[in-house]
Amino acid sequence: MTTLRNQALSDALARAEPAGSVGAWRLRVERLHAYFGRVHAVRGLSIAIAAHRITAIIGPSGCGKSTFLRCLNRMHEVVPGARVEGRVYLDGEDIYAPYVDPVTIRRRVGMVFQRPAPFPTMSIYDNVAAGLRLAGVRDRRRLDEAVERSLRQAALWDEVKDALGKPGTSLSGGQQQRLCIARALAVGPEVLLMDEPASALDPASTSKIEELARTLRETLTIVIVTHNMQQAARVSDNTAFMLAGELVEYGPTPQIFTRPGDHRTEDYVTGRFG
């Protein structure tokens, strides 16, 4: 069974190799286990995430996909009782090595959450500048530049450039989510993790976020968790299907959706799965 899965995995890895950039893995995960107290949420998962690609993680709710995502920037351990085993390499360095400070990892691997959570006491400007200020940036010009650049990247600049002093919570839901993306981009991460970023948004805002993800791919590596298979099919380059904490199948998105190698994947993507 194990060998079989490893075989499937290496096949999948081979298929997922992005054309033209052989070996350009940004993240490599080896035998990752994650626990909440006694709950074993991720069970020995291995995967490699290609640089400058969008990787979608799909699977039924409770399959551990969000937990897995949170292991990639050491957010999992913020929850009391949470525990991680295994290795996660970011550009070849193990982010779980004892000497590594999780704070630096989270600056390099940013995150956007399911529900937009702008800081309610901060203005739009301060929300975006928050991460840089934490890192000790005080220079007003640098902050101004970074705020504008991030808001432009998040396709929000034109809508808010005259209202930077307003509270972040005054924006609409879709705008708030893009504000949170801008906030994550401002610190200049290499990887952006998106945990169901559009599940709380209306269709128009959703397509904006998806469009945004496609453009951000030029500068970033994106891992997106979604329960919406159409969304995964629309935005991602590679797709991984998880079930009960394990990786079932991983490969180029078109292949996963049209010619899945595993019958469970097929059941899920065709909607036959509970």
Binding site: N73, V103, R115, F119
Partner: peptide, 15 residues
Amino acid sequence: VPQEQREAMYALGAT
């Protein structure tokens, strides 16, 4: 205070 607020700050690399 919602946990999301904490996590959003942690995700920016806060101690």
